[in-house]
């Protein structure tokens, strides 16, 4: 057979096979058609369709089914925010409840400058792998700096800064919590946006030990506990100052005396993507390593 003949035979036989199967499938689709609640498609059209998993369902479609069946409230989607919640409430004919915006907070300030290294790590450049060995940082509670949280973010709301710490852009963060789930050391916490006062440290070692490994560690001195204007607003727990958000005022009046400046008010000065790009243009949208 000539090469042209071969090409023609191949094209015709494959095309024919494809066409036959396509017709067969189209017929089967008609025959096995499942009538679905049309609202599922309508809800799905309003949802962001990013499948971030922030709502707790496996994907946007599952949530759409739950909302259409009335098993989930209209404001379940965390990524969509108030707009989506309102539209869904209108579609489902229920009263719109305000969507509470959650934000990711990175509770570690010990980057390359502040925290010491105890070893050289040459393994797989992911936080999970580094965490198995205990990590290269002297502090075994702090950020490992390999940017798994940045990878997990589907909303372009995180980047690693020059100091090997993740930065959250608060204009972009939708509060889906993917970064918090990705972090093997649980350094990232999800907080309502009213929360301002944070202890940016997770080191549960005694003061002397944590001071040795990091310049900005909480050394559990208790000054903030004493200075807090509301009794019980800040407490010491596991050698770590802990804010009681039900009581503590969110200003930093009580935290001025912190010797390591690990507790203060303000979510990273409300960092936005444009600010980060202006400050570190070459790092925006890139991983640490």
């Amino acid at each position: 057979m000539t090469i042209t003949g071969l090409i023609i035979v191949s094209a015709v036989s494959m095309g024919g096979l494809g066409a036959v199967l396509a017709v067969f499938l189209a017929f089967a689709d008609k025959k096995f058609k499942v009538t679905e609640d049309p609202r599922i498609e309508a809800v799905l059209g309003i949802l962001p369709n990013t499948n971030c998993g922030g709502c707790g369902y496996p994907g946007c479609r599952m949530l759409a089914e739950a909302i259409a069946n009335g098993n989930a409230p209209a404001n379940t989607c965390v990524a969509g925010g108030n707009d989506v919640a309102k539209k869904l409430a209108a579609l489902m004919g229920v009263e719109a409840k305000d969507h509470k915006r959650m934000l990711a907070v990175v509770l570690c300030k010990g980057g390359g400058k502040e925290a010491g290294k105890r070893a050289q790590y040459t393994g797989d450049r992911t936080c999970t792998a580094a965490n198995l060995t205990g990590g290269d940082k002297s502090c075994t509670y702090g950020c490992l700096g390999y940017g798994e949280c940045v990878d997990a973010c589907k909303f372009d709301a995180m980047a690693m800064n020059a100091n090997s710490l993740p930065v959250v852009f608060y204009d972009k963060c939708v509060g889906c919590g993917a970064c918090a789930r990705a972090c093997p050391r649980d350094i990232i916490e999800m907080h309502p946006e009213e929360h301002r006062l944070f202890v940016y440290c997770r080191n549960k070692d005694k003061g002397a030990a944590s001071r040795k490994v990091c310049d900005v560690a909480c050394i559990a001195c208790g000054l903030c506990v004493k200075d807090c204007s509301v009794l019980g607003g800040i407490a010491l727990k596991d050698n770590l100052a802990t804010v009681n958000y039900a009581l503590a005022p969110q200003s930093d009046e009580s935290t001025k005396r912190c010797p390591t400046k690990c507790i203060f008010s303000g979510i990273e000065d409300q960092m936005t993507k444009s600010r980060f790009e202006a400050a570190e243009p070459q790092r925006a949208g890139r991983k640490a390593v």
Binding site: M14, L17, G18, L21, F24, L25, A28, F32, V34
Partner: peptide, 16 residues
């Protein structure tokens, strides 16, 4: 091609 079409068919059938 055949396997993909088959799996599709099985999926439709089970769904129904």
């Amino acid at each position: 091609i055949a396997i993909a079409a088959l799996v599709q068919l099985v999926e439709m059938y089970i769904r129904k």
